[in-house]
Design a protein around this nucleic acid. Structure first.
Length: 114
RNA sequence: UAAAGCAGCCGGAUAAUCGCGCCUUGAGAGGCAUUGCUUUGAAAGGUGAGGAAAGUCCGUGCAUCCAAGGACAGACCGCCGGAGAAACUCCGGGCAGCGCGAGCUGGCGGAAAGUGGCACAGAAAAUAUACUGCUAACCACCCUUUUAGGGCAGGAGCGAGGGUGCAACGGUGAGGUAAGAGCAUCACCGGCGGUAUCGGAAGGUACCGGCCAGCUAAACCCCGGUCGGAUGCAAGAUUGAAACAGGCGUUUGAGGUGUCCGCCGAUGCCUGAAAAAUCGCUGGAGCUUGAGAGCAAUCUCAAGACAAGAUAGAUGAUUAUCAGGGAAAUAUUCCCGAACAGAACACGGCUUAUGAGCUGCUUUAUUCU
RNA sequence: AGCGGUAUCGUCUAGUGGUUAGGACGGGAGAUUCUCAUUCUCCAAACAGGGGUUCAAUUCCCCUUACCGCCG
C-alpha cells in the first residue's frame, strides 16, 4: 500500500486524467497519464480493476494488490516519478491468475515511460 | 473387515525483510497567544476478514418521511405443543412417503359452502344411465297345446360386463337372483360418522352404525391467524463562503397518502444547497468458561475478556522451515503446500459454494470366538 | 453496500396450464428468367439451468446462472 500523498483519490482527478488521453499499454495493463507536472510534486497513482474482469472480489483485489506492490517497490528503488500529475493503471482480463513476476515486469516496462 | 447413517471439529503454523489502515503514548516543528489552545507528526507499543464476510431469500433493531380515525382491499402464514424480539426460524411429538436398518424427507387447514378446469382416448370425466348391454320371474303379444311348454326385449326390472384413461360413483371372495346389485346378506380391507378409552393437543386403540363423498386450492375461493405504510446508513444529524433551492399565511380544478370517506396539495412573505469534514460506526437480543433447569430448542445465574471500522476503500509482497497430501522408492528424493472465498450500520436465520482430514455414537452384511 | 427487473429460433418478438410453440427479418433448396433482382412454394432453426405442485409446466412455486436498470 502506498502512503496517502502518492494515492489518487478524488473522482474529479480520475475523470481529468482519463480526459487528457495519453495512454500506453503493456501485457494487459493500460496506463493513463494526466497533465504534465509544472511543479515538482510527486505523481499520484490510481489502480482500477473493473467488475467486468471477474465477478469475485478476491480475484480483483489480488490483481490490484500486485499492481500496487509492484509500483511501491519501483518508487522505493528509483524515487517517485515527477513527470505527470497523475497516472492510472487499468487491468484487463489477461492478468487473471498471473503471478507477481509477470505483473512486475509489465509495470517496470511501463514505468520506463514516466 | 466392508458399506452406510447421524452429530461435531478444523478452515494452517513459525520466522525474516520491505509496506498499509485504525487506536494509544507522543520526540520535534509551526500558528495563535502567553504558559494555555490548536495544526502537523518521527518513533514505539497494540491490533487488523469469514464459516460462509457471498446470494439478498426471510425477519428484527436503528433512521427519516407520511399517517396517527373508520370501512374495504391487500400481503403473508396454515398438523399439535414448546422456544424465540421476530421469521419461508429452531426443538419435541403426530401423520404420510422412502429405506432391510440406523435414519431421512414433507409449502401437512377445507374439495360434505360455491364457481371453474380435467386435453387425447372413452358409452360416460361428475345431476351417471342418454349409448352398448344383461334378464322371459311379472304384464302385453304370438305359436303349440292343455292347466303347462316354447318364442318375443314392447312394457318392466338391472346396474354386473363395455379393453379407454392420471382418474370410472368403494376393493376381493362367498351367498343370493329371472338377471343382478353393499344387497336392512356375510368375512377381510379402505373411507366416513358416533361412543368409550389413552394423551396436555395433534392423534392412537377398541367397539358400533348406516352404506360411500373422483382429482385439482404452488385455480378463484372459504375458514382460522398475523400485519400502520413507504424508504433504506448512498437512512439520517451537525458544520459549512458565493449564482440556486427549502419553511409560514389565503383557495379548491388537477396530484399524493394501496382504494373510498377524511387529510396533505396550488398562490403571496422569510431562511438555506452540491463538493468537503465530523457524527451515525461498533460494547452487542454479542463472545468464552463453569454451574443449574429442561428429552431438546432454549433459559437462568456467576466469573472473565473485548482487540477491524476503511471511504478510489487497509489486512499485502518476497523468502525459508514445519504440520499435512501425492508420486517414485526405501533410511531418502521430487512435487504441491491448497478449496470456496474479502468486512462497508448491526444482529438472528435460510439458501448456495467449499480442500485435506479428524473425533464420537449408531445400523446392516460377512468372518472368527 | 442497498433496492428492483428481464431471459422464447441467428436477430426482433407473439403465446400463458393440454398448441405441430405462431409471425417478421435473415439462412438454405426449388420454380419463374438468357442471367440477376422482384415474386411464389417448401425446408431447417428456440422456451437459460435444476428441483417441486399437477394426470400434464414455456406458463404456477422455489433455488441457481447470466444480463440490465435505479440510488452519489
Amino acid at each position: 500500500m502506498l502512503p496517502k500523498e502518492l494515492r489518487l483519490k478524488k473522482r474529479s482527478a480520475f475523470t481529468a486524467t482519463y480526459k487528457t488521453g495519453t495512454s500506453f499499454h503493456q501485457d494487459g495493463i493500460t496506463m493513463f497519464c494526466g497533465r504534465i507536472n509544472k511543479e515538482p510534486f510527486p505523481t499520484k497513482a490510481g489502480f482500477v480493476v473493473s467488475k467486468k474482469i471477474h465477478k469475485r472480489a478476491v480475484k480483483r483485489n489480488r490483481i490490484k494488490r500486485l499492481m500496487r506492490e509492484s509500483y511501491r517497490l519501483l518508487v522505493k528503488s528509483s524515487g517517485s516519478p515527477l513527470k505527470y500529475m497523475s497516472v492510472i493503471f487499468v487491468a484487463s482480463a489477461k492478468l487473471l491468475n498471473k503471478d507477481f513476476k509477470y505483473i512486475n515486469s509489465a509495470m517496470t516496462k511501463l514505468a520506463g515511460k514516466l
